[in-house]
Write a protein that binds this DNA or RNA. Sequence first.
DNA 1: GCTAACTTGAACATCTCTGTTCGGGTTAAA
DNA 2: TTTAACCCGAACAGAGATGTTCAAGTTAGC
Lengths: 217, 217
Amino acid sequence: MAATPHGAGGRPRSAQRAAAPLIERRADARRNIASILDAAVLLLSRDADASVADIARAAGVGRVTLYGHFSTRADLVDAVLTRTVEQADATLDATDTAGDPRQALTRLVGASWRIVHQFRSVLQAAQRELPPERIRAVHDRILRRVHTIIDRGRRAGVFRDDLPEEWLVTAVFSLMHAAAEDSAAGKVDTGDAARIIAATLLAALSAPGSTVPTVNL
Amino acid sequence: MAATPHGAGGRPRSAQRAAAPLIERRADARRNIASILDAAVLLLSRDADASVADIARAAGVGRVTLYGHFSTRADLVDAVLTRTVEQADATLDATDTAGDPRQALTRLVGASWRIVHQFRSVLQAAQRELPPERIRAVHDRILRRVHTIIDRGRRAGVFRDDLPEEWLVTAVFSLMHAAAEDSAAGKVDTGDAARIIAATLLAALSAPGSTVPTVNL
DNA sequence: GCTAACTTGAACATCTCTGTTCGGGTTAAA
DNA sequence: TTTAACCCGAACAGAGATGTTCAAGTTAGC
């Protein structure tokens, strides 16, 4: 009988991948998992409906092997989303979000929007496959960053206090994604997108009665 | 042989439904078409993936009958979207969008956002089934309204001139949809949504250097 | 009341995906 | 060198879904 390639037997439930296997995988297994994730990101970035078979083929791996590591499609998509978001988060770690809230937000937008743009299709796949809470949870750390900046801006009196903070966070994400779509559709100059988003957001977040800030990039 | 129920024989290509059939349909056919569209709106509003079979059943009509009137699923979705948008457009016809651009925008948001909210799932279905150009085309008249208001506001100096107008229109739609999602998720008070959207938009559209307007509903 | 338009359920023909099983081969690792 | 972990193609199982065809019934409309 072929040994079950499932690593440590019973995987947690799915949709909640264990961060690391209890038993260390063999080198070739790790390599394949990496290939699969790479291929999955690539294909899902181009088409949110890419099939598991396509992904396996692109990874140079048998379909059975893939299913050995990711027991369902949702599992795979979850892993891809998680990895992508973690990488994005690492990028943001290298971004200075201290100091003036408006400048901090501008920098965050500058560092984020390309990622949002590049992986918008992956997010779309996740939205079709995973429950909203899960997607939210994966983004938790990134959401926190935005929250923190907005919070600081509010206390400093430069961001508005008359709307729910949750909504302001939503607005930030929403406009970034919208810009990504427009840029993909050629309706917004890609090189100019960061400025456009930042300008719009800074205005949207300004307190009524205050003066709309000018963008400086 | 049963007569082909396809009305005037060769339908235009699909994805471009003729507004009215060349030969008048029989009364029962018209009734059924109406039932189908009603049911389709209802089901697609709840689940963008509702199947043709489900829709036919909900309409109290045989699946074959449905296919007689809408030769593909995309055809049906197109018809649903078109009808919905047309109805929305009619509602907006009854909305005063003259006068002060900021107030006009506020009124337009007030009249629109519930519709956007109610039918967001229909739009989702359309996005999965129809090419983007087609969706854009269906929304043409509505887009024009927004354009007109923004244009007027720019000329009056109350809306910003430093960002592409296309983008501002995108921002309007994007924020309305985002609010619809948030409201559906219970993150934003439904009764307050119009005010929140309008406040955010008026700020976002304000020219740098000017004062952020206060909302008045 | 005649007729063509219309409706209908049932069955069929595909298609495409997901996920599993099997039997045998390969390779990492001690 | 041994062996358990791993990989693989092929084949199967099955769940939907979309469209089509058929043969027989209703019904609108003149």
